[in-house]
């Protein structure tokens, strides 16, 4: 898919070996609680939305970690915490050994360049009043990557063609482009700072099926080309399986299962993961008609008042009495396969 793969070869920074390396991102005990307040003048704290409630994972260099779950499970908030767009309530986020939660805004700037994000909605994540070229230019200018405006212009052209766009598009506005093209602009903008780590927050879920595949292939090519590390946040389990090395399943602010991709899909252990996988219809009537589907009843409870014990127990088909009292720990049941359930 890369029309001109050699376009950025001059960047020495990008030529790393492509094997999985050291731990790049290490998230420990991350909690993000949002206050709910009442009253206009005297703000009174009346509750907490426990969006993320104790999450641990690490990502190695060159790896893609998938973070899946339904809306409201805290997957996006986790991503925003790593980006330091939210200051977490508790926990540590190490990036190349430095704890981002302890750094002030000035010290963070260096890391903001290394950690970039691709957003879900290509319509609202681009400024409608800026030209495509300006949008890709701005981060490079702000971070002083390339002081020479002419060289920046050249790099914009390179980035656009790497992302499968015609360099002439630099003079267009977002409204002149389709959803897929806009998402390519978002990717080019993220790449402009030569990041090491990109958080992809539902990058394809707003796109049509045929365009989704184009963007997924592009993300894969870029990862190999520049040895990028991704945190891939999504709710589409088949897309996650295609792209990721390891997958973490979140439910109501917690990770309920974490394993290598093939292991998780072939041998899901947590009842929630099983229910999720079973709920995805396969695009083949012959498979579908004969497929035994176990639907999970009920809905996701509110993160304001999560159930006691295991958060999944009200919907769980294999729950026992102790599930409503004790919070199950994430246990390593097989090498690399972690499950937070006391009944498996």
């Amino acid at each position: 898919m890369i029309p001109d793969a050699s376009a950025l070869e001059s960047d020495a920074q990008y030529s790393r070996n492509s094997e999985l390396g050291d731990v790049l991102v290490d998230v420990k005990g991350l909690k993000m609680h949002f206050p709910i307040t009442e009253g206009i003048i005297f703000n009174k704290l009346v509750g907490l939305v426990k969006a993320v409630d104790g999450v641990d994972f690490h990502i190695r260099r060159g790896e893609t970690l998938g973070l899946v779950g339904e809306s409201g499970c805290g997957k996006t908030t986790t991503g925003r915490c790593i980006l330091q767009l939210e200051r977490p309530t508790e926990g540590e986020i190490f990036f190349e050994g430095a704890d981002l939660t302890k750094l002030d805004q000035v010290a963070l700037r260096e890391y903001r360049q290394k950690i970039q994000v691709i957003f879900q909605d290509p319509y609202s994540s681009l400024n409608p009043r800026m030209k495509i070229g300006e949008m890709i230019d701005e981060p490079m200018y702000v971070h002083g990557i390339e002081p020479d405006a002419r060289k920046r212009k050249q790099r914009i052209n390179e980035l656009l063609s790497v992302c499968g766009l015609n360099p002439k598009m630099a003079d267009r506005y977002p409204h002149e482009m389709s959803g897929g093209q806009r998402q390519r602009v978002g990717i080019a903008r993220a790449l402009s700072l030569r990041p090491e780590f990109i958080i992809c927050d539902e990058p394809v879920s707003a796109l049509d099926v045929s365009i989704q595949a184009q963007i997924i292939n592009l993300l894969e090519d870029l990862r190999e080309e520049y040895n990028l590390t991704y945190l891939f946040i999504a709710h589409d389990l088949s897309v996650v399986r295609h792209l990721c090395h390891r997958v973490a399943v979140m439910y109501l602010g917690r990770i309920v299962e974490l394993a290598d991709c093939d292991e998780l899909y072939e041998n899901p252990m947590h009842p929630y993961t099983r229910a999720l996988l079973s709920a995805v219809p396969v695009p083949d009537p012959e498979v579908e008609q004969g497929r035994d589907v176990s639907f999970v009843a009920g809905e996701v409870p509110s993160p304001i008042n999560p159930p006691p014990g295991c958060v999944f127990h009200p919907r769980c088909p294999i729950a026992v009495e102790s599930c409503s009292q004790e919070v199950p720990e994430l246990r390593e049941l097989k090498p690399g396969h972690w499950v937070a359930c006391s009944e498996v």
Binding site: I211, A213, I216, N217, R241
Partner: peptide, 18 residues
Amino acid sequence: LSSVPRLDQPRQKRLDPI
């Protein structure tokens, strides 16, 4: 049909988009 990844089949190396 060939551009969607499927859960019931082995992982493909690459997707085949339109």
